[in-house]
Design a protein around this nucleic acid. Structure first.
Lengths: 231, 231
DNA sequence: CCAAAAGTGTTTCACTTACACCCATGA
DNA sequence: TCATGGGTGTAAGTGAAACACTTTTGG
């Protein structure tokens, strides 16, 4: 590999890697891609790639997400930057990790460009992954579990209109513990953050549930005046 | 500035910057250095510098901290990575920001190498700072306010032995709100995380308070079995 | 003996938890 | 009519918040 230090400063390869979470009924999933490039070829890994000097880190993460999986317009947040010297066997690469929350319903997942394949895996059921991606996955999962309790980001995993049972399931799946139905409903409805759509779900073989949607403007207003969301 | 892309990938300058918090009786302070280098010369800025390809990001942060301020062996945690394209007017520089908590008592602060001067400023009383360091300062302050409530990191700002009043003041200063003395003492003592040193403070013109220290091993044990610290 | 901060309990209120049955719907 | 999940209220317990006076010490 060609190398020449023609810079005033030491220079680094910088990548972004994304942990993409999706909720599949009652399992939390992450998307992995099968690498097409020769290093770690055919191994599963997080989607990601090199940052271009002309784009911000956030832009790079969104671009890679779209390029490698077709996913776009999702909740995306920086997770942590991994900079161990030998985390990439080829050379020193610093990676800025992100995590994304996607609504599984209505996302078309495709494997493109560098990726030979893309697939969803249960968070506790991932194949071995390349580089230090296992550390990234673990940290992302922990961050999600922590953040979901005091920020209403969980809605990003659900369809726009959802039932209270779906909402509760989402929390149960992420937090990995059961919640009491009556207490959950009392609490979430008391927050005044859900709008009753005055619609019911369709095509279910039992009493159809009411549909709600998250009232984001209302949340922002409340948050400003000191309201604390908490599950 | 010389430039030549002799790499397989686009390469980036990567720096680390540190927000150093200290507690000065009843004000939360941050340390800034006056830049000696020509870009933003004489302006105040966060201590920091370029990452060497042969060191991890954490190592780089500790090295810069020591080199520029003489501070070492402190609590240090990665904050966020700032990667806007034009955050450095010279060229694209990605910076990994850290924050540190230091015990003001017993730290010798010096200005060395690249820094012309180093000084403490109240968090709400900082001079204009170079680059996007104001954003970094703001985020660090918010992170500290958030984290101090559910992780016992505040002790890093106090001497090893401290009084309950000092401890309470620390939380009041960071959280910027008053706490009730009796409730605070009840709560913190009930956690069983403080060891009574069986000593009292010296040279005070009033009744001397008992000294305590933080029982870290005990905290780690409790944390493992699901205990949740919370102020 | 005065100034200054240390130290100490109780009551009230709000919130969390535990818990079980009837209802609506489609098959 | 049965199976399936939807939807609802109350009582007990726990933890948070409010609140004021006495004690100790040095000057």
């Amino acid at each position: 590999m060609a190398r020449k230090y023609s810079y005033k400063y030491p220079m680094h390869a910088v990548t972004v890697d994304c942990v993409i979470f999706g909720l599949d009924e009652d399992e939390l999933k992450v998307m992995l891609i099968q690498r097409g490039e020769k290093t770690f070829k055919d191994q599963w890994a997080l989607p990601g790639g090199f940052v271009d000097p002309k784009e911000s880190l956030d832009d790079a993460a969104r671009r890679e997400l779209e390029e490698e999986t077709g996913i776009h317009k999702v909740y995306l947040e920086q997770l942590y930057t991994f900079g161990a010297v030998d985390r990439d066997p080829r050379e020193r690469v610093v990676t800025v990790a992100y995590y994304a929350l996607v609504k599984l319903s209505g996302q078309v997942i495709r494997a493109t460009t560098d990726a030979a394949d893309a697939a969803w895996f249960g968070v506790h059921d991932c194949p071995p992954v390349a580089f230090d991606h296992d550390d990234i996955l673990t940290m992302a999962h922990r961050r999600l579990q922590g953040k979901v309790r005091y920020q209403p980001i969980g809605f990003e995993l659900l369809p726009v209109k959802f039932t209270l049972t779906q909402l509760q399931r989402m929390y149960e799946v992420i937090l990995e513990k059961e919640l009491d139905k009556r207490n959950f409903r009392k609490k979430i409805l008391a927050m005044d953050l859900l709008i009753d759509c005055n619609e019911i779900e369709r095509d279910v073989a039992h009493r159809a549930a009411r549909l709600y949607r998250f009232d984001e403007p209302s949340y922002k207003r409340l948050a400003k005046s000191g309201f604390n969301f908490e599950i």
